[in-house]
Design a protein around this nucleic acid. Structure first.
Lengths: 242, 242
DNA sequence: GAACTCGCAGCTGTCATACAACTTACAAAC
DNA sequence: GTTTGTAAGTTGTATGACAGCTGCGAGTTC
């Protein structure tokens, strides 16, 4: 037990998620090019050995993700992905993996500096608020909606402690979905992996808080960078791993 | 950054799209709060007078959007409330000195990381654009309006080279007037001091460009931080002096 | 021969039904 | 009191059917 290297893709929570990831990889790796027509749903049905229900759900999700477009009576076609990054496309709810990676790069720039400023300028009241948010997040395990909310609250409490309205406004404009990114949990297979991930995040949050508490700007900035970089690395791993 | 008013009435091509928008509106308007359990699919089937196929497709799309989470055997639960991703920088007119210092702190966080990413990811074309902007700024001496524009162009060309739409959009939303420093120039009576100041800024720009050219992320980040910190220091100095 | 139309095959959208797998709660048995 | 069994509720999947749309080609008309 516990060799730790089980096949991620085959242990998905449901079949349609597996189909989504498989087709997504085919698009990313170039086996399906923009403009190509996907096989008909009935054909995919045979190819993946699942019912049309699953295929349809997978294609629907790929459509909302902006990877394909479906036309009634015609078929399903791969969209040209890289160039249609129009206004604030990365911030829409249905992001591609690249959008999420870009978002994390963006948050690194903002939140690393925010953490540094917070360590310099926090009041004791603001530190207490960070502590409260940290505890709330720690106890939000097994409550997904609370986890999303409290995770966001933690990051926001740091922005408050930075005492710079611009950082706070920007973070709040991103919102809980962009901070906690609950969509990515669809990619995590078993419950054990999710628990491990949650614990890691809690530890990283703790490190950020501690550095802010001892008024160590470089330390808090480094801890925040670690936190976001780790998150990005975990996400990138899932993406590139075929 | 405004999208999302129209789709309720407009996109009736899909029944599931209509269901998605209706439920999203219910979450936005507070009829459904994070943590709440949605009605069972069979109940929604009756409520919307559509088949379960449509309901399932809608819920699946809401899940990939990160708004809800489904659990086999349990039900569907609301995760979070969608956020209107609108960020508007405060207007420049009635700004206190503190506001301007905050703005520079804000730009430090953003542009330092932007410079780092640009050093990693720039193409040769993008580097050439930075070079062009650098030269244009250098020749904009004694032309205040051109100096403002070309200064902004230089910073923007770096954001372009970072290859991350979010940084570029944010920088552009801040606008040219905020990037350069007309305020400090107005307060500097001595013309010779102005020339010295301009020379310094050009040198700082040059250092940033050079680091990006040799693909040195830490160097370019440090050079950008120096540049903006110097600017901040000059502004703070003017404040305390007057 | 060219243009038109008309039907057919293929595809997606939707509906209906049935069953499997999982969770919870409660009751029965120990 | 603890455990176990069981039933109800819920999501996941399979299957079959039909409606509506598209593209193509055979047949028709000029």
């Amino acid at each position: 037990m516990g060799y730790g290297h089980r096949r991620v893709r085959e242990e998905m929570s449901n079949l349609s998620t597996a189909v989504v990831e498989t087709i997504r990889q085919q698009i990313i790796q170039g086996h399906l090019c923009p403009g190509d027509k996907l096989p008909a749903e009935s054909a995919l049905e045979n190819e993946f050995k699942v019912s049309r229900t699953v295929i349809r759900e997978a294609l629907s999700r790929l459509q909302t993700a902006g990877l394909v477009e479906k036309y009634r009576g015609k078929g399903t076609y791969v969209l040209t992905r890289p160039t249609d990054h129009s206004f604030s496309a990365p911030l829409q709810e249905n992001q591609s993996h690249q959008d999420r990676l870009d978002l994390l790069d963006f948050r690194i720039g903002i939140e690393v500096e925010t953490a540094g400023l917070a360590a310099q300028r926090r009041s004791t009241t603001q530190l207490a608020a960070i502590r409260t948010a940290l505890d709330a997040f720690e106890h939000a395990n097994h409550k997904p909606s609370a986890a999303v909310t409290t995770d966001f609250d933690f990051h926001r409490s740091i922005a408050v402690a930075a005492n710079n309205r611009l950082y706070l406004d920007l973070l709040q404009s991103l919102g809980p979905t962009m901070i906690s990114m609950p969509q990515t949990r669809l990619l995590q297979a078993d419950q054990e992996a999710q628990a491990t991930h949650f614990r890691r995040v809690v530890d990283e949050h703790q490190a950020i808080h501690d550095a802010i508490e001892r008024q160590d700007p470089q330390g808090s900035a480094a801890a925040m960078r670690t936190h976001l970089s780790q998150t990005r690395a975990r996400l990138a791993l899932v993406t590139t791993r075929g």
